[in-house]
């Protein structure tokens, strides 16, 4: 069942369309990734979906509520975690969570209970009394996520949840995202990190120049990106001298020499490793390592958007 329905959404600034006639649906309980290069229209789209910006055209329905006509009603069932932690520096973690819960009309006793539970879940109970300004970046992100879910929203918008934090905190946050999915939450996620999207998202939409150019599941994207089967070998010996012989030996596979010590076997069908290793050994080449190579989401991103690679990271629009 679709919990979010976006139809022909547009956002124009004069003649420029930041969001240009996009349509998509998000199924209840899925993690929906929203990726795109700098200035693609991700932030504009999110701002419209959460009621911080008005669209120039189109319709948005969240859980059957018309977001444009009944913005406040829709906001009661959504949680938002912005790209920058926006809690109150002077207040401690516990008070910040209680305050956020109060904005949704939750009574004192209930909000204090929820705040305590979330602090424990996010492993922040030890710093509950510490002012937010003294939290580390990772702690700040975790508390901001906790604040985004304290009113138990049906759908959570997560904007760059792991940007700028340490590896351990990022891993914890990814685990928390997956745990929220298990609880049945629907998550709309934007991220710089394609690997993160690959790991946690069920489906991904790519937006380029205000238009959605692709929506697919991660596995479908992978299959589309490279239908070939690839094995990378690390070897010792002169690969160039045996190249022709090997090509003739394996009709259904071709070899690409990557460098002096590694090569790639590419085939339409799944390759059996043993005959290749045996053949190489007979020709005096030892194989040290064999690895199946799958295309990364980054490869797919580059293919779809035409944007250059940058250390696995895509520059985000602002």
């Amino acid at each position: 069942m679709a919990i979010v329905k976006v139809t022909n959404l547009k956002k124009a600034y004069g003649d420029f369309y930041a969001v240009n006639d996009i349509s998509f649906e998000i199924q209840a309980g899925e993690i929906f990734g929203f990726l795109g290069p700098n200035g693609a229209g991700k932030t504009s789209t999110i701002n419209i979906l959460i009621g911080l910006s008005r669209p120039s055209g189109g319709q948005i329905e969240i859980h059957g509520i018309d977001v444009i006509k009944e913005t406040k009603k829709a906001q009661s069932i959504i949680g938002v975690v912005p790209d920058e932690s926006n809690l109150y520096d002077e207040m401690n973690g516990f008070d910040n969570l209680c305050f956020c819960a109060s904005l949704y009309g939750i009574g004192k006793e209930e909000r204090e209970k929820r705040a305590k539970d979330l602090l424990k879940l996010f492993e922040l109970d030890g710093v509950a009394e510490r002012p937010f300004k003294h939290y580390s970046k990772g702690m700040r992100r975790k508390l901001t996520i906790a604040a985004g879910i304290i009113h138990n929203p049906k759908i959570l918008f997560l904007d760059e949840p792991t940007t700028g934090i340490d590896v351990e905190s990022a891993m914890q946050i990814r685990d928390l995202i997956l745990a929220l999915k298990k609880e049945g939450k629907t998550i709309f996620l934007t991220t710089h990190y394609l690997e993160e999207a690959e790991r946690v998202c069920d489906r991904i939409a790519f937006i380029v120049k205000g238009k959605i150019v692709k929506i697919s599941t991660v596995s479908e994207l992978m299959e589309e990106a490279s239908p070939d089967y690839r094995i990378k070998l690390k070897v010792s010996g002169n690969l160039h001298s045996i190249r022709d012989k090997l090509d003739n030996e394996f009709d259904d596979a071709r070899m690409e020499i990557l460098d002096e010590t590694s090569c790639l076997f590419i085939s339409k069908e799944e390759l059996s490793l043993y005959p290749i290793i045996e053949s190489l050994n007979k020709k005096g080449i030892a194989v040290y390592e064999a690895k199946e190579i799958k295309p990364s989401l980054e490869d797919i991103f580059v293919k779809i958007t035409g944007i250059g690679k940058s250390n696995g990271r895509v520059v985000k629009d602002k």
Partner: peptide, 12 residues
């Protein structure tokens, strides 16, 4: 500090 966004996003 963008904390005002929190108020604008609340159902009030």
């Amino acid at each position: 500090g963008r904390s005002f966004e929190r108020l604008l996003l609340a159902p009030i």
